[in-house]
Simulated assay, not measured.
Amino acid sequence: MTQREYAQFFKDPHVWKEDLVAVGGDFSPDRLLYAYSHGIFPWSENPIHWYSLDPRAIFDLQNVHFSRTILRKIRRNQFRISYNEAFKAVMQGCAYREKDSTWITPGFFKGYQNLHRLGYAHSVEAWNEKNELVGGVYGVALGKFFAGESMFAYESDAGKITLYHLFEKLKASNFSLFDTQQLNHVTWSLGAYEIPKSSYLQRLETAVGNLEPWIIPP
């Protein structure tokens, strides 16, 4: 599809008042990149539901709050941290639910793994002393914009520690906008807050700039 066709498929978040902006389509890289660069994200499959929320939850990268316990674990190098080493496994960790169903269904796996291969989706991993994956976070990077998708932990604080390291890499690369979509207890406790959709879209337009893949700094 062309950019014009995508613009006809999605309602324009600048003028559309409802959160739901489209139903259907696919998880092709072009559609996902168009969606993220216009403040839209998928939230379910069969059919795919696309949203642009108002208000929108974000992190200010310069004002994130981590507890003393987490900072102490980071200083002690309790976990080995890696980047883009186990993207699929991180998605699997985020999708795991002992009882409840998950929104990370097969289409999400295929779509975001394709984005990962193209350099637009990234993961951060935490490994314990047995070299077992015990925590991780993944999301989508466009220009100086990062959309945090999901996080998991099999050991205490492992997920938050990967998020800390992700924030540090984003700050080193001068990212200006981190989207966390909707507030929950965890993101709120770390300093996430809500802004009007109109303000979010203005900041997004400046942050995206171009669609060059992000190269994580050493």
Rank of each mutant, 00 (worst) to 15 (best):
S176L: 11
K169S: 14
T2Y: 02
G159I: 09
I74A: 04
T206W: 08
M151W: 02
I161S: 00
E125N: 00
D19K: 04
W50S: 01
F109Y: 10
L53T: 10
E205W: 04
N210C: 13
F175E: 09
G136P: 07
D30Y: 06
A95V: 03
F108G: 08
G25F: 07
A86H: 09
W188N: 13
Q182I: 15
I40D: 10
T180H: 11
A153H: 15
F9K: 02
A153M: 13
A57V: 03
G143Q: 02
L20I: 06
V186C: 06
P196E: 10
E194I: 03
G191H: 14
V15S: 15
L20F: 00
L142S: 00
I195E: 07
Q62T: 08
L170F: 01
L33K: 15
R76W: 04
A121W: 00
A147F: 11
A22T: 04
W103D: 12
L118H: 14
S82H: 08
F27E: 03
G148N: 10
E125L: 05
S101F: 05
F66I: 01
I104V: 13
M91Q: 07
E132S: 08
L53A: 05
A22R: 01
E132F: 04
K110H: 15
S123N: 13
E125C: 00
R56D: 01
G93K: 14
P47Y: 01
R97W: 12
A153W: 15
P42E: 08
I81F: 11
L166Y: 03
R4P: 02
I48E: 10
T102D: 12
I48W: 09
I195S: 07
A153C: 07
